[in-house]
Design a protein around this nucleic acid. Structure first.
Length: 466
RNA sequence: UCCCUGAUAGCUCAGUCGGUAGAGCAAGUGACUGUUAAUCACUGGGUCGUUGGUUCGAGUCCAACUCAGGGAGCCA
């Protein structure tokens, strides 16, 4: 007997007049004393449930079927037929229902057929995948990841796996997690009494990566179009809906490209992703539209249709200074824009994503390319309404003398970066890239308000339980 | 890390002026001629986050701590 997914049966892909098998978990059970029960079955293959009609003529009707509760695992055999009731295309007329796994103590089973708060579900991270929301998030997350790989692949990019362990202790992107095999109770010490990392596993102090960018630039200088897609770690004590200690990041890097090319790539990539989600996951998006964020679908359609606004930092400062809006923090040229400023630009002034470009060099990283004005660098941030900075990127400084001057200015030692500087000594070319926070992207697409709810097992300060 | 708010049944919450604990959903039992997070009736279910303090008496007032949420900073 052939097994069919819930998705296939609802799409009418199961053969008519043939007994098939479905397998999954009970969402709800409704009884009718007409002598039958309705079981809503999910197997995660799509948003919808398959309705299984089980009549009291089944041998285990009273003993088992009437005791099924949310979460029970079952297999059912039967005919897939057009539904006699409203609300679903097809349903199964069951000839057998086998219970594979009961729910122990249904009263305390956390996942009940009712609304749960996201905070509660976060405490039940091992069970929350069984909910409508998390199932929909998981499928959309997968769709986005696949779309990103497809977008780059179709455009001739090569996926480069940059290292997760790194000895660069000054990548400048944030606090880092140390990785060590030294005995923390009794570690070897230098004459100065500090930990002697020369006796550690790698012979020097080692961390988890905060960015694959510097590494991926080396492959960019050989393969022209490359990107990373992998986990990233930041030991910042950030407690917000947009930060995780462990998150996934996509970092394309393109040779012979400038800032305008970079912005165009970011825009094309986001549009490609949004189109893919709307096309491939209409069921899940309809759910997000109804229960999570009214208007998400129109939001994405608008992003696909309209050109992203490009705006120079200097212009943004002028707008903010003359808009008449009272900000908690005053705006002047040279400051790092506050969340309230970015939000005003994206949400009020433009009402759509904005690509802010050419920031003052003093508030940006050392590797960003110095513009001819000597004051700004070719950096860009993509600000999305509602979530803020979703992408940060730049054209890189390809001129060794300028890069060295910048490193001196910032006070970075050259020796650890000799390999990064070598890229500028041997066949250097203009190049540019950006970083996309994967969870921020998933949150934006689904309308979910917290990145902790779009990653299966969020890691945040004080939370590494599951 | 800073500011604000919160923690009461399995879940979501109410709980007045300090006077001895409530609802809805879920669960159990029963009713109901195909239901759509069904409906109706009944039943069981509580260390009021932790510790200490004030008081004859604390879910309620005070302090500290823990955790969570919103905002900020840092950033993706």
């Amino acid at each position: 007997m052939n097994t069919y997914s819930v998705k296939a049966t609802l799409a009418g892909k199961a053969p008519a007049e043939t007994t098939v098998t479905v397998k999954g978990w009970v969402r709800t059970r409704r009884d009718s004393k007409a002598g039958l029960s309705f079981i809503a079955l999910t197997d995660g293959s799509c948003f919808g449930n398959l309705q299984i009609v089980a009549e009291n003529t089944l041998s285990n009707y009273a003993s088992e079927i009437q005791h099924l509760t949310a979460g029970c695992a079952i297999e059912a055999d039967g005919l897939i037929v057009p539904s006699q009731g409203q609300g679903q295309s097809y349903e199964m007329q069951a000839t057998a229902v086998r219970v594979i796994g009961w729910v122990d103590d249904p009263e305390t089973y956390p996942i009940q057929p009712k609304p749960h708060s996201m905070e509660f579900l976060r405490e039940q991270a091992h069970l929350r995948a069984r909910t409508n929301v998390m199932g929909a998030v998981a499928r959309v997350r997968h769709t986005i990841a696949q779309a990103i790989h497809r977008f780059f692949h179709e455009d001739g990019f090569v996926w480069v796996n940059t290292p997760i362990l790194t000895a660069s202790d000054a990548e400048g992107a944030g606090e880092m997690f140390r990785v060590s095999t030294l005995d923390m109770m009794n570690f070897p010490r230098t004459p100065e009494g500090k930990p002697d990392f020369s006796q550690d596993f790698f012979g020097k102090e080692t961390f988890l990566t905060v960015s694959g960018q510097l590494n991926v630039e080396t492959y960019c200088m050989a393969l022209s179009k490359v990107y990373t897609f992998g986990p990233t770690f930041r030991a910042e004590n950030s407690n917000t809906s947009r930060h995780l200690a462990e998150f996934w990041m996509i970092e394309p890097e393109v040779a012979f490209a400038n800032l305008a090319d970079n912005a165009a790539l970011a825009e094309a990539m986001l549009k490609y992703v949004f189109k893919a989600v709307l096309a491939e996951r209409p069921d899940d998006m309809a759910f997000f539209e109804e229960r999570i964020e009214k208007g998400v679908i129109a939001k994405l359609e608008g992003m696909i249709k309209n050109e992203f606004v490009r705006m120079d930092y200097t212009e943004a400062v002028n707008i903010l200074q003359n808009c008449g809006h009272k900000f908690d923090y005053d705006v002047s040229w040279g400051i790092d824009l506050q969340s309230e400023h970015e939000r005003y630009l994206a949400e009020k002034h433009v009402g759509a994503p904005v690509i802010l470009q050419n920031y003052p060099k003093d508030i940006k990283a050392f590797y960003m390319r110095l513009n001819d004005d000597g004051k700004t660098v070719a950096a860009m941030d993509v600000l999305a309404p509602g979530i803020g900075e979703i992408i940060g990127g730049a054209q890189r400084e390809e001129r060794l003398d300028v890069l060295d001057a910048r490193m001196d200015e910032v006070g970075l030692p050259k020796e650890p970066y000799y390999w990064y500087r070598d890229l500028r000594r041997y066949g250097t070319v203009p190049h540019a890239g950006f970083g996309l926070g994967f969870e921020r992207c998933v949150a934006y697409v689904t309308g979910m308000g917290n990145v902790r709810d779009v990653i299966p097992f969020p890691r945040t300060p004080g939370n590494v339980r599951f």
